[in-house]
Nucleic acid binder design. Structure first.
Lengths: 189, 189
DNA sequence: TATTTAATTTGACAATTATCAAATCAAATA
DNA sequence: TATTTGATTTGATAATTGTCAAATTAAATA
Protein backbone atom coordinates (compact mmCIF):
# COMPACT_ATOMS: atom_id res chain seq x y z
CA UNK A 1 0.00 0.00 0.00
CA UNK A 2 1.33 3.41 -0.93
CA UNK A 3 1.77 6.14 1.62
CA UNK A 4 -0.85 8.16 -0.20
CA UNK A 5 -3.45 5.43 0.26
CA UNK A 6 -2.52 5.09 3.86
CA UNK A 7 -3.04 8.78 4.43
CA UNK A 8 -6.29 8.83 2.49
CA UNK A 9 -7.65 5.94 4.53
CA UNK A 10 -6.57 7.60 7.73
CA UNK A 11 -8.11 10.89 6.72
CA UNK A 12 -11.38 9.18 5.84
CA UNK A 13 -11.59 7.66 9.30
CA UNK A 14 -10.79 10.98 10.92
CA UNK A 15 -13.51 12.63 8.83
CA UNK A 16 -16.16 10.29 10.18
CA UNK A 17 -15.22 11.33 13.69
CA UNK A 18 -15.00 14.99 12.68
CA UNK A 19 -18.56 14.74 11.38
CA UNK A 20 -19.61 13.49 14.82
CA UNK A 21 -17.52 16.05 16.68
CA UNK A 22 -20.04 18.85 16.87
CA UNK A 23 -22.96 19.25 19.23
CA UNK A 24 -25.31 20.55 16.56
CA UNK A 25 -24.60 17.54 14.38
CA UNK A 26 -25.14 15.12 17.26
CA UNK A 27 -28.49 16.79 17.84
CA UNK A 28 -29.39 16.50 14.17
CA UNK A 29 -28.64 12.78 14.26
CA UNK A 30 -30.87 12.35 17.29
CA UNK A 31 -33.71 14.41 15.82
CA UNK A 32 -33.55 12.53 12.53
CA UNK A 33 -33.48 9.24 14.38
CA UNK A 34 -36.86 10.05 15.92
CA UNK A 35 -38.30 10.71 12.47
CA UNK A 36 -37.05 11.81 9.07
CA UNK A 37 -36.87 15.59 8.81
CA UNK A 38 -36.05 18.28 6.28
CA UNK A 39 -33.60 21.14 6.54
CA UNK A 40 -36.06 23.89 7.30
CA UNK A 41 -37.57 21.95 10.18
CA UNK A 42 -34.14 21.30 11.70
CA UNK A 43 -33.22 24.94 11.26
CA UNK A 44 -36.37 25.97 13.15
CA UNK A 45 -35.77 23.50 15.98
CA UNK A 46 -32.10 24.34 16.39
CA UNK A 47 -32.61 28.07 15.75
CA UNK A 48 -29.89 28.23 13.13
CA UNK A 49 -29.72 29.61 9.64
CA UNK A 50 -30.90 27.07 7.03
CA UNK A 51 -27.57 27.50 5.23
CA UNK A 52 -25.74 26.47 8.38
CA UNK A 53 -27.94 23.42 8.76
CA UNK A 54 -27.33 22.64 5.10
CA UNK A 55 -23.58 22.55 5.76
CA UNK A 56 -23.98 20.26 8.72
CA UNK A 57 -26.29 17.97 6.77
CA UNK A 58 -23.76 17.81 3.95
CA UNK A 59 -21.02 16.75 6.36
CA UNK A 60 -23.18 14.10 7.93
CA UNK A 61 -24.23 12.81 4.52
CA UNK A 62 -20.65 12.80 3.21
CA UNK A 63 -19.62 10.80 6.25
CA UNK A 64 -22.34 8.28 5.45
CA UNK A 65 -24.28 8.95 8.64
CA UNK A 66 -27.36 10.35 6.93
CA UNK A 67 -29.23 9.50 3.77
CA UNK A 68 -31.10 12.11 1.77
CA UNK A 69 -34.10 11.53 -0.45
CA UNK A 70 -36.38 13.89 -2.31
CA UNK A 71 -39.96 14.28 -1.14
CA UNK A 72 -41.71 17.03 -3.09
CA UNK A 73 -39.98 20.28 -2.31
CA UNK A 74 -38.17 18.72 0.54
CA UNK A 75 -34.89 16.93 0.96
CA UNK A 76 -35.78 14.46 3.69
CA UNK A 77 -32.93 13.14 5.80
CA UNK A 78 -32.92 9.76 7.47
CA UNK A 79 -30.40 8.02 9.69
CA UNK A 80 -28.09 5.62 7.89
CA UNK A 81 -27.63 2.71 10.23
CA UNK A 82 -24.67 1.26 8.36
CA UNK A 83 -21.92 2.73 10.51
CA UNK A 84 -23.57 3.28 13.85
CA UNK A 85 -23.36 -0.35 14.90
CA UNK A 86 -19.58 -0.34 14.71
CA UNK A 87 -17.48 0.02 17.82
CA UNK A 88 -14.88 2.73 18.26
CA UNK A 89 -12.24 0.02 18.21
CA UNK A 90 -13.38 -1.05 14.75
CA UNK A 91 -13.08 2.48 13.51
CA UNK A 92 -9.80 3.36 15.20
CA UNK A 93 -7.69 0.27 14.65
CA UNK A 94 -5.43 0.24 11.63
CA UNK A 95 -3.72 -3.03 10.73
CA UNK A 96 -0.11 -3.18 11.84
CA UNK A 97 1.43 -3.51 8.38
CA UNK A 98 -0.46 -0.44 7.28
CA UNK A 99 0.88 1.55 10.22
CA UNK A 100 4.39 0.44 9.43
CA UNK A 101 3.98 1.52 5.84
CA UNK A 102 2.76 4.91 6.93
CA UNK A 103 5.17 5.89 9.69
CA UNK A 104 8.64 4.93 10.81
CA UNK A 105 8.03 3.21 14.12
CA UNK A 106 11.78 3.00 14.78
CA UNK A 107 12.29 6.73 14.30
CA UNK A 108 13.03 7.22 17.99
CA UNK A 109 15.59 4.40 17.97
CA UNK A 110 17.25 5.83 14.86
CA UNK A 111 17.35 9.27 16.38
CA UNK A 112 19.03 8.00 19.54
CA UNK A 113 21.56 5.97 17.57
CA UNK A 114 22.30 8.93 15.34
CA UNK A 115 22.87 11.10 18.39
CA UNK A 116 25.21 8.75 20.22
CA UNK A 117 27.14 7.08 17.44
CA UNK A 118 29.69 8.80 15.18
CA UNK A 119 31.29 6.76 12.42
CA UNK A 120 30.42 3.53 14.15
CA UNK A 121 31.91 4.57 17.50
CA UNK A 122 29.91 5.29 20.62
CA UNK A 123 30.47 8.94 21.50
CA UNK A 124 29.08 8.56 25.00
CA UNK A 125 26.93 6.14 26.97
CA UNK A 126 23.55 7.91 27.45
CA UNK A 127 22.60 8.75 31.02
CA UNK A 128 18.91 8.15 30.40
CA UNK A 129 17.82 4.56 30.79
CA UNK A 130 15.65 4.34 27.68
CA UNK A 131 18.37 5.77 25.50
CA UNK A 132 21.11 3.71 27.13
CA UNK A 133 19.05 0.62 26.40
CA UNK A 134 18.75 1.51 22.72
CA UNK A 135 22.50 1.98 22.46
CA UNK A 136 23.38 -1.21 24.32
CA UNK A 137 20.93 -3.26 22.26
CA UNK A 138 22.71 -2.01 19.18
CA UNK A 139 26.09 -3.03 20.59
CA UNK A 140 24.73 -6.43 21.63
CA UNK A 141 24.04 -7.16 17.98
CA UNK A 142 27.77 -7.66 17.55
CA UNK A 143 27.64 -10.84 19.60
CA UNK A 144 26.42 -14.14 18.26
CA UNK A 145 23.68 -15.97 20.10
CA UNK A 146 24.52 -19.20 21.90
CA UNK A 147 28.26 -18.64 21.61
CA UNK A 148 30.56 -18.44 24.63
CA UNK A 149 32.93 -15.49 24.97
CA UNK A 150 35.89 -15.02 27.29
CA UNK A 151 36.24 -11.59 28.89
CA UNK A 152 39.19 -10.92 26.59
CA UNK A 153 37.03 -11.61 23.55
CA UNK A 154 34.23 -9.43 24.89
CA UNK A 155 36.65 -6.58 25.51
CA UNK A 156 38.08 -6.92 22.03
CA UNK A 157 34.62 -6.50 20.45
CA UNK A 158 33.57 -3.66 22.74
CA UNK A 159 36.78 -1.76 22.06
CA UNK A 160 35.47 -1.15 18.54
CA UNK A 161 32.73 0.98 20.05
CA UNK A 162 34.35 2.75 22.99
CA UNK A 163 37.51 2.69 25.08
CA UNK A 164 35.55 2.40 28.31
CA UNK A 165 34.84 -1.29 27.87
CA UNK A 166 34.18 -1.78 31.58
CA UNK A 167 31.12 0.50 31.49
CA UNK A 168 29.84 -1.20 28.36
CA UNK A 169 30.28 -4.65 29.90
CA UNK A 170 28.53 -3.57 33.07
CA UNK A 171 25.69 -2.02 31.06
CA UNK A 172 25.15 -5.16 28.99
CA UNK A 173 24.95 -7.30 32.10
CA UNK A 174 22.84 -4.80 34.00
CA UNK A 175 20.20 -4.60 31.29
CA UNK A 176 20.21 -8.36 30.85
CA UNK A 177 21.50 -8.23 27.30
CA UNK A 178 24.37 -10.52 28.26
CA UNK A 179 24.98 -12.92 31.12
CA UNK A 180 28.23 -13.78 32.88
CA UNK A 181 28.81 -17.09 34.55
CA UNK A 182 32.21 -18.28 35.85
CA UNK A 183 34.02 -15.74 33.72
CA UNK A 184 32.17 -16.85 30.58
CA UNK A 185 29.93 -14.36 28.73
CA UNK A 186 26.92 -15.29 26.68
CA UNK A 187 24.40 -13.20 24.77
CA UNK A 188 20.82 -13.38 26.06
CA UNK A 189 18.16 -14.77 23.75
CA UNK B 1 -32.59 17.89 33.82
CA UNK B 2 -31.60 21.51 33.26
CA UNK B 3 -30.73 22.82 29.86
CA UNK B 4 -27.21 23.49 31.09
CA UNK B 5 -26.73 19.84 32.00
CA UNK B 6 -28.13 18.80 28.67
CA UNK B 7 -25.68 21.01 26.88
CA UNK B 8 -22.77 19.87 29.03
CA UNK B 9 -23.57 16.24 28.36
CA UNK B 10 -23.92 16.91 24.67
CA UNK B 11 -20.65 18.81 24.58
CA UNK B 12 -18.88 15.99 26.40
CA UNK B 13 -20.01 13.50 23.79
CA UNK B 14 -18.96 15.81 20.99
CA UNK B 15 -15.56 16.22 22.63
CA UNK B 16 -14.92 12.48 22.57
CA UNK B 17 -15.50 12.51 18.83
CA UNK B 18 -13.48 15.68 18.40
CA UNK B 19 -10.59 13.94 20.11
CA UNK B 20 -10.85 11.17 17.53
CA UNK B 21 -11.29 13.57 14.62
CA UNK B 22 -7.67 14.12 13.72
CA UNK B 23 -5.36 11.84 11.78
CA UNK B 24 -2.38 12.43 14.07
CA UNK B 25 -4.43 11.44 17.08
CA UNK B 26 -5.72 8.30 15.37
CA UNK B 27 -2.11 7.39 14.64
CA UNK B 28 -1.12 8.01 18.24
CA UNK B 29 -3.87 5.68 19.42
CA UNK B 30 -2.68 2.98 17.05
CA UNK B 31 0.96 3.39 18.02
CA UNK B 32 0.16 3.32 21.71
CA UNK B 33 -2.01 0.27 21.19
CA UNK B 34 1.01 -1.64 19.92
CA UNK B 35 2.96 -0.72 23.03
CA UNK B 36 2.98 2.05 25.62
CA UNK B 37 5.05 5.01 24.45
CA UNK B 38 6.22 8.39 25.68
CA UNK B 39 5.85 11.80 24.10
CA UNK B 40 9.34 12.10 22.71
CA UNK B 41 9.10 8.77 20.94
CA UNK B 42 5.78 9.69 19.35
CA UNK B 43 7.18 13.06 18.31
CA UNK B 44 10.10 11.30 16.60
CA UNK B 45 7.85 8.80 14.82
CA UNK B 46 5.32 11.37 13.67
CA UNK B 47 7.95 14.04 12.95
CA UNK B 48 6.13 16.67 14.96
CA UNK B 49 7.20 19.08 17.65
CA UNK B 50 7.00 17.50 21.12
CA UNK B 51 4.76 20.37 22.22
CA UNK B 52 2.30 19.53 19.47
CA UNK B 53 2.29 15.90 20.52
CA UNK B 54 1.78 17.01 24.09
CA UNK B 55 -1.39 18.86 23.07
CA UNK B 56 -2.72 15.86 21.21
CA UNK B 57 -1.93 13.59 24.15
CA UNK B 58 -3.75 15.95 26.49
CA UNK B 59 -6.85 15.86 24.30
CA UNK B 60 -6.81 12.10 24.11
CA UNK B 61 -6.29 11.80 27.85
CA UNK B 62 -9.06 14.32 28.61
CA UNK B 63 -11.40 12.34 26.42
CA UNK B 64 -10.55 9.21 28.41
CA UNK B 65 -8.96 7.43 25.47
CA UNK B 66 -5.45 7.32 26.91
CA UNK B 67 -4.06 6.78 30.37
CA UNK B 68 -0.82 8.36 31.50
CA UNK B 69 1.54 7.05 34.14
CA UNK B 70 4.92 8.18 35.27
CA UNK B 71 7.91 5.98 34.50
CA UNK B 72 11.14 7.70 35.51
CA UNK B 73 11.52 10.78 33.37
CA UNK B 74 8.83 9.63 31.07
CA UNK B 75 5.11 10.04 30.94
CA UNK B 76 4.09 6.71 29.45
CA UNK B 77 0.77 6.60 27.62
CA UNK B 78 -1.36 3.50 27.32
CA UNK B 79 -4.65 2.86 25.59
CA UNK B 80 -7.69 3.06 27.85
CA UNK B 81 -10.00 0.31 26.68
CA UNK B 82 -13.02 1.63 28.57
CA UNK B 83 -14.65 3.50 25.71
CA UNK B 84 -13.37 1.74 22.63
CA UNK B 85 -15.75 -1.18 22.93
CA UNK B 86 -18.79 1.04 22.67
CA UNK B 87 -20.66 1.39 19.40
CA UNK B 88 -21.26 4.72 17.72
CA UNK B 89 -24.96 4.28 18.42
CA UNK B 90 -24.21 4.08 22.15
CA UNK B 91 -22.27 7.29 21.98
CA UNK B 92 -24.63 9.22 19.73
CA UNK B 93 -28.05 8.36 21.10
CA UNK B 94 -29.52 10.75 23.64
CA UNK B 95 -32.67 9.65 25.45
CA UNK B 96 -35.84 11.22 24.04
CA UNK B 97 -36.84 13.12 27.20
CA UNK B 98 -33.41 14.68 27.30
CA UNK B 99 -33.70 15.85 23.71
CA UNK B 100 -37.10 17.36 24.43
CA UNK B 101 -35.70 19.23 27.40
CA UNK B 102 -32.87 20.59 25.29
CA UNK B 103 -34.61 21.70 22.11
CA UNK B 104 -38.12 22.58 21.00
CA UNK B 105 -39.03 19.77 18.66
CA UNK B 106 -42.25 21.54 17.69
CA UNK B 107 -40.45 24.74 16.70
CA UNK B 108 -41.26 24.17 13.03
CA UNK B 109 -44.94 23.62 13.79
CA UNK B 110 -45.05 26.76 15.93
CA UNK B 111 -43.33 28.77 13.25
CA UNK B 112 -45.82 27.65 10.61
CA UNK B 113 -48.79 28.37 12.88
CA UNK B 114 -47.40 31.77 13.76
CA UNK B 115 -46.97 32.57 10.08
CA UNK B 116 -50.45 31.54 8.98
CA UNK B 117 -52.61 32.49 11.94
CA UNK B 118 -53.37 36.03 13.08
CA UNK B 119 -55.51 36.50 16.18
CA UNK B 120 -56.88 33.01 15.92
CA UNK B 121 -57.92 33.39 12.26
CA UNK B 122 -56.29 31.62 9.35
CA UNK B 123 -54.75 34.28 7.11
CA UNK B 124 -54.31 31.91 4.20
CA UNK B 125 -54.22 28.18 3.53
CA UNK B 126 -50.54 27.33 2.82
CA UNK B 127 -49.76 26.07 -0.64
CA UNK B 128 -47.05 23.72 0.56
CA UNK B 129 -48.29 20.34 1.66
CA UNK B 130 -46.26 20.07 4.85
CA UNK B 131 -47.37 23.48 6.02
CA UNK B 132 -50.96 22.96 4.95
CA UNK B 133 -50.99 19.80 7.00
CA UNK B 134 -49.75 21.60 10.10
CA UNK B 135 -52.46 24.23 9.74
CA UNK B 136 -55.27 21.74 9.09
CA UNK B 137 -54.21 19.58 12.03
CA UNK B 138 -54.52 22.65 14.21
CA UNK B 139 -58.01 23.35 12.90
CA UNK B 140 -59.04 19.73 13.34
CA UNK B 141 -58.43 20.12 17.06
CA UNK B 142 -61.66 22.10 17.20
CA UNK B 143 -63.67 18.97 16.49
CA UNK B 144 -64.40 16.34 19.10
CA UNK B 145 -63.54 12.75 18.38
CA UNK B 146 -66.29 10.24 17.83
CA UNK B 147 -68.96 12.95 17.45
CA UNK B 148 -71.09 13.32 14.32
CA UNK B 149 -71.33 16.72 12.64
CA UNK B 150 -73.73 17.94 9.97
CA UNK B 151 -72.24 20.05 7.18
CA UNK B 152 -73.93 23.10 8.72
CA UNK B 153 -72.19 22.44 12.05
CA UNK B 154 -68.85 21.92 10.32
CA UNK B 155 -69.21 25.18 8.41
CA UNK B 156 -70.08 27.03 11.59
CA UNK B 157 -66.89 25.87 13.30
CA UNK B 158 -64.68 26.50 10.26
CA UNK B 159 -66.09 29.99 9.82
CA UNK B 160 -64.22 30.94 13.00
CA UNK B 161 -60.97 30.34 11.13
CA UNK B 162 -61.64 31.51 7.60
CA UNK B 163 -64.48 32.55 5.33
CA UNK B 164 -63.49 30.04 2.67
CA UNK B 165 -65.02 27.08 4.52
CA UNK B 166 -65.24 25.01 1.35
CA UNK B 167 -61.44 24.91 0.95
CA UNK B 168 -60.99 24.06 4.60
CA UNK B 169 -63.55 21.26 4.40
CA UNK B 170 -61.93 19.88 1.29
CA UNK B 171 -58.48 20.05 2.90
CA UNK B 172 -59.59 18.22 6.03
CA UNK B 173 -61.07 15.41 3.97
CA UNK B 174 -58.15 15.32 1.53
CA UNK B 175 -55.58 14.91 4.27
CA UNK B 176 -57.69 12.34 6.06
CA UNK B 177 -58.19 14.47 9.12
CA UNK B 178 -61.97 14.13 8.76
CA UNK B 179 -64.22 11.71 6.95
CA UNK B 180 -67.58 12.34 5.24
CA UNK B 181 -70.22 9.68 4.86
CA UNK B 182 -73.80 10.31 3.71
CA UNK B 183 -73.53 14.01 4.55
CA UNK B 184 -72.23 13.25 8.05
CA UNK B 185 -68.75 14.44 9.10
CA UNK B 186 -66.58 12.74 11.68
CA UNK B 187 -63.09 13.47 12.96
CA UNK B 188 -60.49 10.78 12.27
CA UNK B 189 -58.91 8.97 15.22
C1' DT C 1 23.47 20.69 45.11
C1' DA C 2 23.91 21.40 40.23
C1' DT C 3 22.75 19.52 35.92
C1' DT C 4 20.09 17.22 32.66
C1' DT C 5 15.94 16.29 30.38
C1' DA C 6 10.93 15.29 29.70
C1' DA C 7 6.61 17.64 30.27
C1' DT C 8 3.98 21.60 30.27
C1' DT C 9 2.77 26.33 29.46
C1' DT C 10 2.69 30.54 26.86
C1' DG C 11 2.48 33.33 22.93
C1' DA C 12 2.21 33.87 18.08
C1' DC C 13 0.62 32.58 13.82
C1' DA C 14 -1.52 29.56 10.28
C1' DA C 15 -5.15 26.62 9.00
C1' DT C 16 -9.60 25.03 9.51
C1' DT C 17 -14.33 25.31 10.68
C1' DA C 18 -18.84 27.50 11.90
C1' DT C 19 -21.95 30.90 11.05
C1' DC C 20 -24.90 34.03 8.51
C1' DA C 21 -26.52 37.04 4.58
C1' DA C 22 -27.15 37.29 -0.07
C1' DA C 23 -27.31 35.21 -4.49
C1' DT C 24 -28.25 31.35 -7.33
C1' DC C 25 -30.31 26.99 -8.56
C1' DA C 26 -33.94 23.60 -8.90
C1' DA C 27 -38.35 21.77 -8.30
C1' DA C 28 -43.25 22.21 -7.64
C1' DT C 29 -47.42 24.75 -8.14
C1' DA C 30 -50.66 28.39 -9.79
C1' DT D 1 -45.00 30.36 -18.21
C1' DA D 2 -44.38 32.87 -13.95
C1' DT D 3 -44.11 32.38 -9.15
C1' DT D 4 -43.04 30.30 -4.99
C1' DT D 5 -40.02 28.03 -2.04
C1' DG D 6 -36.50 24.70 -0.36
C1' DA D 7 -31.63 23.59 -1.34
C1' DT D 8 -27.22 25.00 -2.45
C1' DT D 9 -23.41 28.09 -3.31
C1' DT D 10 -20.63 32.09 -2.44
C1' DG D 11 -18.41 35.48 0.19
C1' DA D 12 -17.34 37.48 4.50
C1' DT D 13 -16.34 37.15 9.22
C1' DA D 14 -15.87 35.00 13.73
C1' DA D 15 -14.43 31.19 16.36
C1' DT D 16 -11.79 27.24 16.99
C1' DT D 17 -7.93 24.36 16.36
C1' DG D 18 -3.17 22.92 15.05
C1' DT D 19 1.49 24.01 14.93
C1' DC D 20 5.97 25.53 16.51
C1' DA D 21 9.48 28.24 19.26
C1' DA D 22 10.69 29.70 23.57
C1' DA D 23 10.20 29.74 28.46
C1' DT D 24 9.03 27.35 32.56
C1' DT D 25 8.36 23.46 35.58
C1' DA D 26 9.26 19.01 37.59
C1' DA D 27 11.72 14.94 38.16
C1' DA D 28 15.85 12.15 37.94
C1' DT D 29 20.76 11.71 37.92
C1' DA D 30 25.67 13.02 38.53
Amino acid sequence: MSETNFEANLEARANLFKALGHSVRLLILNLVRIKPRHGEELAAILRLNPATISHHLAKLTDAGLLQARKDQYYQMYTLNTEHVGKTLADLIHLPQPEISSGVEQDAYRFKVLKTFFRHGRLVQLPAQLKKRLVVLEKIAESFEPRREYSEREVNHILLDFNDDVASLRRGLIEHKLMARSKGIYRKMV
